[in-house]
Design a protein around this nucleic acid. Structure first.
Length: 471
RNA sequence: GGCGGCAUGGCCGAGUGGUGAGGCGCCGGACUGCAAAUCCGUUAACCCCGGUUCGAUUCCGGGUGCCGCCUCCA
């Protein structure tokens, strides 16, 4: 069994993980602000992928870096009159808090740029020795793009056709296309000793160094947003392949689409149209956010709106309800076993071909529909889905959803289902109310329901008995 | 200007050379003392013009529109 990934470099499906192990590197945040939901796409999506691959028996090494030295961090620190380390600490904590809110697991390795300065320096030295880089003598070191003939391959750009912009000023560079590997530090800026004088690393070099260090066999999959394809990944590739032409750097590049707002387009800090992950989770809950991301393919752009997220919340609830209904099934049937098997197979097929989460989610819903139809036709069947309940729980958990497992209490022969443990006396009154209902004492039943409602509990009557929930 | 991607039913969104994924909504129904839910069923689409083909939403060409990138934005 192997996973196929649509590699952005070749445009083809590439097999990875044949040997059972997968090294995954994903570009993480530059910590100079709270992450917005656009930034959340990568951690959330890859979290699902990692969980899934592990559930299928793969050994996964998941590396996601934190960029903790960069112009924007320095600018932020200067604006606020604090040290750059303070900015880094604050927003690294914020990042972790938000991952936690999203229910995203931390990667196996979370390397920081500043912890890899020696590796970067030695990589730069190798590039200089190989003629791929030069130090003009002012403390900077630049990559010599001309020395790498396949430059532009990843982004399908031809160097001679690249538009010249002010951002690509020549300065002390040989060519406007050359990019900084090392920058001389100005006073007050983060600074490390180097063969070229005190300085700090360029942006791209950190990822080259960290991929090589933490995934010595090369990255099977290298993820990041489509906006990183150029220049960031193009430059990473030029650096790593330039320094080590015989070593595989990346087997499959997987670029995910941008998150857009319907009205204002791409969500970007520079455009000011950002939505903090925290606000999105507060508004819609993490499960809705997961459903939203999983119901479209990672390679496509995705649109955010309050309405869409509300829709996704409802979608997820439907699965949660189905699970609640069949959870606790004590027996299995031929139908049950067949549905469980089909569910697992279809999810696998979808995921193993380019991580097609929407296809996998569709399979879950489709199977759910068939269960509903069976229960609808034969209510007693609700207790005969042990295998499917198990498969469903496993898959939804693998996708990182919070599956609420209901408890069942039996009071005076009345079965009451609830997800959240109620305080003493509540269950007794729910049972009392159900007793009142059975003897058609509607006045008492309604009074008890109102009473419980005032205390924050909602009682719903179902054919299978009362269900207690939070209002 | 260059490069890349995308155009699917009211909305979101997969996929396929020929039997209409899936979700949300609408509508119909079931359940129901009331309430709130829930469940079932149905509805409906492949941007435009050519071409290839027995047959194209799917392949090719052209057009239109939208999005991203073009040196440090996930």
């Amino acid at each position: 069994m192997s996973v196929q990934i649509r590699d952005t470099l070749s445009g083809r499906l590439v097999e990875v993980g044949e040997g059972g192990n997968i090294g995954l590197y994903v570009c993480g945040p530059t910590v100079y602000n709270h992450i917005h939901i656009g930034n959340a796409r990568a951690p959330l999506f890859w979290d699902v992928v990692v969980r899934y691959l592990r559930s299928r028996g793969y050994g996964v090494t998941f590396v996601q870096n934190i960029t903790d030295v960069e112009d924007k961090i320095i600018n932020k620190a200067n604006e606020e009159g604090v040290s750059w380390q303070e900015v880094v600490d604050r927003y690294t904590d914020s990042f972790h808090e938000r991952l936690d809110l999203l229910g995203v697991n931390l990667p196996d390795v979370e390397p920081r740029a500043t912890e890899h300065i020696p590796e970067m320096i030695s990589l730069i030295q190798e590039l200089i020795e190989g003629g791929h880089a030069y130090a003009p003598g002012n403390g900077d070191v630049y990559y010599r793009v001309e020395s790498f003939p396949s430059y532009g391959q990843l982004s399908r750009q031809r160097p001679d056709e690249m538009r010249e912009t002010e951002k690509a000023q020549t300065g002390s560079k040989e060519s406007p296309l050359d990019f900084a590997l090392w920058k001389a530090s100005k006073p007050g800026e983060p600074s490390w000793e180097s063969p070229w004088g005190p300085g700090r690393p360029g942006w791209h070099i950190e990822c080259s160094a960290m991929v090589e260090k933490h995934l010595p066999e090369g990255a099977d999959i290298h993820g990041g947003g489509t906006d990183l394809r150029f220049p960031h990944h193009e430059n990473e590739l030029a650096q790593s392949a330039g320094a080590h032409p015989d070593h595989t750097f990346v087997r499959a590049w997987a670029h995910h689409g941008m998150v857009n707002f319907a009205e204002t387009g791409k969500m970007a800090k520079s455009l000011g149209n950002i939505l903090d992950v925290k606000d999105a989770v507060d508004r819609h809950g993490r499960d809705a956010l997961r459903m939203w991301l999983l119901q479209s393919h990672y390679s496509q752009p995705i649109e955010y709106s309050e309405n869409i997220l509300e829709e996704k919340r409802r979608s997820y609830e439907r699965l949660q309800h189905l699970y609640s209904r069949i959870f606790g099934s004590t027996s299995s049937s031929e139908l049950d076993a067949g549905l469980a098997r089909e569910l697992r197979e279809r999810v696998d097929r979808a995921m193993l071909e380019d991580l097609n989460t929407p296809e996998a989610v569709a399979a879950i819903f489709e199977l759910a529909g068939r269960v509903g139809a069976e229960i609808s036709a034969r209510p007693g069947a609700v207790h005969e889905f042990r295998a499917l309940a198990e498969a469903l729980a496993e898959i939804l958990t693998t996708f990182g959803f919070d599956l609420a497992e209901e408890s069942v209490a039996e009071v005076n022969g009345i079965r009451i289902r609830y997800a959240e443990e109620p305080e003493a006396g509540v269950l007794a009154r729910v049972a009392e109310r159900e007793g009142a209902r059975r003897s058609k004492d509607w006045a008492l039943a309604d009074r008890l329901r109102d009473e419980l409602k005032a205390e924050g509990w909602l009682v719903e009557d179902t054919p299978e008995g009362p269900v207690l929930g939070r209002r």
